[in-house]
Design a protein around this nucleic acid. Structure first.
Lengths: 148, 148
DNA sequence: GCAGGACGTTCAGCCTGCTGACCATTCGAC
DNA sequence: GTCGAATGGTCAGCAGGCTGAACGTCCTGC
């Protein structure tokens, strides 16, 4: 595999996708030490406060319910999360961290090599982050057309 | 689905992934009118100059050969691309645009709503693009560790 | 109390990405 | 010429996205 041939000419959408894929790849390589990937790690992080329902997790991650269902199935299979039908509302599934899941999350977070790596690369990272946040808020609003 | 809950606190990797997914989603919705998606469209664009081998396309897209193979299979199934074993080197597969593929590409490109949409959102887009290009060049170099 | 709608989750199927393994062809050294 | 390495593609299988459709549960209005 070779260097990209002049990415400065690419469409912005392609720049975004490529950058995201490369960042995910680097991050996944780091998280693999704890049997995690980027999706699973973010979910564990969300659960560190308190148990949540699957739909709450999906909304927090800006992902469809079906997608979250499969991410959780994998996390459960790896023993990092446990799922139990709610007693108050038997439609809901309460998802909580297991001890193994909490340990993995804490350790992976402490050694946050991926974020540091990105920090090395982009000097003025606040600018990039601000632009991405604006983009996300706008595109997200268009997609799910919810006021404010 | 709801608005993201304060993306400004997210890790940069998650910002990138989310922004990329939202942008792809918007772009795919646009390209669906011509039976395309973001991956297929980019390939057709690369082929607009001259036929290429699959590996050349994979390298240009910064994607693994196997991934490109399946994208092309889909494009061929939809009649937008044709594949033929090279007569000079029978390992290679020469990929070229069909008339239908060229028409779809030209029409989709002319009505480039996605790019215009991104233009509306991010005021200082040159900054964002420059940061993304720097990120891609660095992460890509780390991943495939090629000098220069 | 019951019927219909809303809600939360899952199933099936598609697409793009990845890795690992395999096959055919070509090239190069001997 | 032959054998082994390099090259170009494909197959199998996994993962995270998506859509559309189904299912059980809850709620609400009558």
């Amino acid at each position: 595999m070779s260097q990209p041939s002049d990415p400065s000419g690419w469409a912005t959408g392609r720049l975004l996708s490529t950058a995201a894929r490369l960042a995910e790849h680097a991050w996944d390589a780091h998280l693999a030490h704890w049997g995690l990937n980027h999706a699973g790690f973010a979910v564990l992080h969300l659960l560190s406060g308190a148990p949540r329902s699957q739909r709450e997790l999906a909304q927090a991650m800006q992902v469809e319910d079906q997608t979250m269902s499969r991410v959780l199935e994998r996390l459960e299979r790896h023993g990092q999360v446990s799922r139990a039908r709610s007693t108050h509302d038997r439609r809901r599934v309460e998802v909580s961290l297991t001890d193994a899941g909490r340990t993995a999350m804490v350790e992976a977070e402490a050694d946050d090599a991926a974020e540091r790596m990105l920090g090395d690369v982009v000097p003025d990272r606040a600018e990039l982050r601000a632009a991405l946040v604006a983009l996300i808020e706008d595109l997200s609003a268009r997609r799910w057309s919810q006021p404010g």
